[in-house]
């Protein structure tokens, strides 16, 4: 479907990657940990190693959650843009296949959130 308009309607996407000064827009979500009330977004250099994302970026969003320190990273289940995925901690975000507006989600089996109900 397209928009009805008088004259041509210009397509002016505001959030194309070129507008982010070399960064890409990356979304991080921790499933079933609703104390953090929504997924969080970050402008990140695509050559940032995935390990740095985990160690430096994620704590800013998820660190306040009481279970953050208890994560067993060997058992984390990752998805990238809806597909299961195994990140390489040494490789860059780009080399891990992470693009502009990608969504990275982590699931932490055994950690069920505050009160065990996904908070």
């Amino acid at each position: 479907m397209t928009v009805n308009s008088i004259g041509e309607y210009p397509v002016l996407p505001r959030d194309v990657v070129d507008n982010f000064h070399g960064n890409i827009f990356v979304v991080l979500g921790w499933d079933k940990h609703m104390m953090i009330s929504s997924p969080m977004a970050f402008p990140l250099p695509p050559d940032m190693p995935f390990g740095a994302l985990v160690q430096e970026v994620m704590p800013a969003a998820f660190g306040p959650h009481p279970e953050w320190g208890e994560i067993d990273w060997a058992t984390v289940e990752w998805t990238l843009d809806g597909e299961p995925f195994t990140p390489d901690m040494e490789k860059s975000l780009a080399d891990n296949g992470i693009g502009h507006k990608s969504v990275i989600r982590l699931r932490t089996p055994g950690l069920d959130g505050i009160a065990g109900v996904g908070i």
């Binding site: 979304v27 979500g29 609703m34 104390m35 953090i36 009330s37 929504s38 997924p39 969080m40 977004a41 970050f42 800013a60 969003a61 306040p64 009481p66 969504v103 505050i114 009160a115 109900v117 908070i119």
Partner: peptide, 24 residues
């Protein structure tokens, strides 16, 4: 339980404010 946990943090002087921006 979420509100009670937030209240606990607040009583410790650590009122929780998100330091990051959400996906909207």
């Amino acid at each position: 339980p979420r509100l009670e946990y937030w209240r606990e943090l607040e009583q410790k002087g650590e009122r929780y404010y998100s330091q990051t921006l959400p996906l909207i």
